[in-house]
Amino acid sequence: MSARSSTPVFLDTLRHIETPEGIELSLRVAGPVARILAWSMDSLIRYGALWVLLMVLAMLGEGGMGLWLIALFLTEWFYPALFEVYAGGATPGKKALGLKVIHTNGTPVDWPGALIRNLLRAVDFLPLLYGFGLAAILCNRNFQRLGDLAAGTMVIYRDPAAATPQLPPGRALPPPFPLNTAEQQLLIDFAERSTTLNPERQAELADLLARQTGLYGVAGVERLCAHARWLAGEPA
């Protein structure tokens, strides 16, 4: 119970990558809960399809069973890899959960990567029911299981399509003080989300900047929204 540490911690699940062009990307690494759900969904799809196939092929007798066993082998080993390479890094389960597989350097996963991470499921499955895989995920900074570590891949949340900000209508005013990019974004966020906050909370937030705007309460909220509209490109 002595967790008191001198250096301040700042917990998050982002992984920052700098591209060769010098652009910093923040990838949101996906943890066990979403991945277990995606895996369950994939299992349902896979074994459901195999079950239907079994019903059909059972009518063909022994030859049909042979075909079914081949299908079982193929789906067991290549279903995830196939989807990960050709369907944008996501099996149907991962797609439903908004996940995708990429290399740790941010590039899309390719055949070697997908094959290694999926063939090594056999190791992650040890000693039974993904015991080692789960342990690895919980120990690893990027939530990588052993197959991911070997293949140099990780699972991230895919970014939702960027939407243009929907600001409440009103007049636009240039801010009277210089703002950096993060602060401009903050003001636009505030205006955009002010409709989802109750009026008291809106005023509370706007009052934090009352000393700068010189306005309190509803007037302050309206002033900040006006600055946001100006920053978002509306004419003054």
Partner: peptide, 21 residues
């Protein structure tokens, strides 16, 4: 001691894992 940003629900549970760690 955590980054405050808007997360989806699954991302929020991931933050829980990081906290325990």
């Amino acid at each position: 001691a955590a980054e405050l940003r808007r997360r989806n629900a699954w991302e929020a549970t991931d933050l829980g894992m990081v906290m325990v760690r």
